[in-house]
């Protein structure tokens, strides 16, 4: 997994509450058996005017010029500023895969849906929760300043504005540890193989019906 220590980049606004995972990556693209290549279909139904198809070349598709990511000022953005309950809906990890493949490394919002939040950490994306009032303020600054950038420093757990403002955020210690070091968390879990085996044999003793029924 890609490490995340500090990211500085252009911020794109997603000024709408309850952005769901169907919106982030529509279902027809979930038919892929790969983990990569979803970036061109990120926000497909908002970004293009026609209905996208898997394996389609997106060059030449009619663009929705009103959509933020089609505007020149947000080109190359790596940070997404969003509203509450970002990533609600399905568990599809294709949502963070699409964000990451497009180039986003961080999403800032007042709240996230649980499964999406968790999926981000598995894919080198940092979801940052900030107070709604602060998010409101960042939206204002972003709309007022073309080329608006933020620095997200995971190690010191803060967002830095170009004017020098420092906004702290909370993150779970274990998730931070994995992301900062780019750790494969299966490998980390397997360091506990003895504990898992010990639990499993005790579990089998007390609830034998949970084992072996499906051959």
């Amino acid at each position: 997994m890609k490490k995340f220590t500090q990211v500085t980049g252009i911020v794109a606004p997603m000024d709408r509450a309850n952005i769901d995972t169907d919106m982030i990556i529509p279902k027809q693209f979930l038919k892929s058996i790969k983990r990569t290549g979803f970036g061109k279909n990120l926000f497909d139904e908002l970004r293009y005017l026609d209905e996208g198809q898997p394996d389609q070349d997106c060059e030449g598709r009619p663009l929705n010029n009103d959509f933020v990511l089609n505007q020149a000022r947000y080109e190359g953005s790596t940070v997404l500023l969003a509203r509450q309950n970002f990533g609600c809906g399905s568990s599809r990890e294709h949502a963070p895969w699409a964000l990451e493949d497009y180039g986003f490394r961080c999403v800032i919002a007042p709240s996230f849906a649980d499964i999406f939040y968790n999926n981000c950490f598995k894919n080198g994306i940092l979801p940052v929760i900030l107070d709604e009032k602060i998010v409101d303020k960042l939206f204002v600054e972003l709309f007022d300043n073309e080329g608006y950038e933020l620095t997200i420093d995971l190690e010191s757990q803060c967002v830095k504005t170009t004017t020098g403002e420092i906004i702290p955020f909370e993150v779970d210690a274990f998730r931070k540890h994995c992301l900062v070091n780019g750790l494969d968390d299966i490998g980390v879990t397997l360091e506990n193989t003895d504990s898992i085996k010990a639990f499993e044999s005790k579990h089998k003793e007390t609830s034998p019906w949970l084992f072996g029924a499906i051959a």
Partner: peptide, 21 residues
């Protein structure tokens, strides 16, 4: 019972466990 992402599907296949809070 709860839904998980694909990385966690792999995690459960490989370890029979999930990291949870």
């Amino acid at each position: 019972a709860h839904g998980i992402g694909t990385s966690e599907v792999e995690h459960v296949l490989a370890t029979q466990c999930l990291v949870q809070k």
